[in-house]
Computed example of a mutant assay.
Amino acid sequence: MPARSETSSATADERGFSALPRRRRLEADERRAQILACAVDLFGERPYAAVSTAELAQRAGVARGLINHYFGNKRDLYLAVVRRMVTLPELGTMIVPTGTAQQRVDAGVRWLLDIIAEHGRIWVKVTSHEVVGADPEVQQILDAADDAVAERLLLIVGLAEWAHDAELRTFVRAYGGMVKVAGREWITRGTLTREQVHELLCDMLLTLVTRTLPNVDRRR
């Protein structure tokens, strides 16, 4: 009996010791997420140059050194904001629509506009280089995101077999440029309503997937 007691005690001690780092990692992840969320808000409110790391730390309620610890410097933190804005939800969380081409296109545009609406002005700033200009690392992140969106959109509209075709995906990337401009007119300038943007993008996407892409594929 004493031997079993000692074993149980040792096992409990080991479990307690191994659980402590897990709690610390969770706290660190939460703190990092807190800083990132505050950075999203601040970069959405003001130009990049007008945001200081001291202000970011104050908004997040952390010591300034923690921003350097988790992100490096202000530019590195901004790059994390860019990645956050353009990272798509996991494919497993999406319900791929079925139905006619028009119904799939409608679902695809609604998905795009939901992403824009979720992030608002900071999405417009990030995707239009409004914050730091033509930064090559920002461009690399945005290019990868544009490709990911093009692949996902082809899946949504029922053209999954073309999702990994670089040439056809380029046409969808070009359509993505219209999405960004229309998003700016809607979110920032207020010159278009969401309904108007939805109609415009549906018309263009339907033409792209029912006429343009099939014609390009046939001519190859």
Rank of each mutant, 00 (worst) to 15 (best):
L155H: 10
L42Q: 09
R83H: 08
L113V: 14
R24M: 12
M1S: 03
V209Q: 12
P2D: 04
M85E: 13
V105G: 09
D114E: 10
Q103G: 15
T191A: 10
N215S: 10
I122K: 06
I35D: 00
E137A: 12
A166F: 01
P97R: 09
A148R: 11
R169I: 08
P89K: 07
G176R: 09
D165A: 02
A49D: 15
Q196E: 14
W123E: 12
G16H: 13
T53L: 12
R25H: 04
L77K: 00
C38T: 02
L113Y: 13
A148H: 08
R220M: 08
L201R: 07
R173K: 12
R4A: 13
N73K: 00
T100Q: 05
D106V: 11
A182W: 13
A57W: 01
E30V: 02
F43R: 00
E137Y: 08
L26W: 00
A3K: 07
R110E: 13
G99V: 05
L206T: 15
T207H: 06
W111L: 15
V86L: 01
P136V: 03
Y175K: 04
G99W: 07
V126S: 02
T100I: 04
V81T: 01
R22V: 05
G99P: 07
G92W: 01
L56A: 11
M1C: 01
T212P: 11
L36G: 08
D114R: 07
N215Q: 03
R31T: 09
R31V: 03
D114F: 02
A54W: 05
V181R: 12
L213D: 14
I35F: 00
F171D: 03
W162V: 06
I141E: 15
D41V: 01
G72M: 03
L142I: 05
D114I: 11
R220V: 03
D203V: 11
R83W: 01
L154D: 07
T191G: 06
M94A: 13
W186H: 15
P136A: 02
T212V: 13
A39R: 00
I35K: 01
N215V: 03
V181G: 04
Y175S: 06
G61L: 03
Q102E: 15
R169V: 15
G120F: 08
I115T: 13
E130H: 09
T100F: 04
R31C: 00
L155C: 12
R25A: 05
A134G: 03
M1K: 04
A101L: 14
S8F: 10
A33Y: 01
L205F: 02
V216F: 13
L56I: 09
H129S: 12
A54F: 06
M204T: 14
E14L: 15
I67R: 00
R15K: 09
V157Y: 14
L159A: 08
L201W: 02
L155P: 06
V96S: 06
A39E: 00
Q196L: 02
A10C: 09
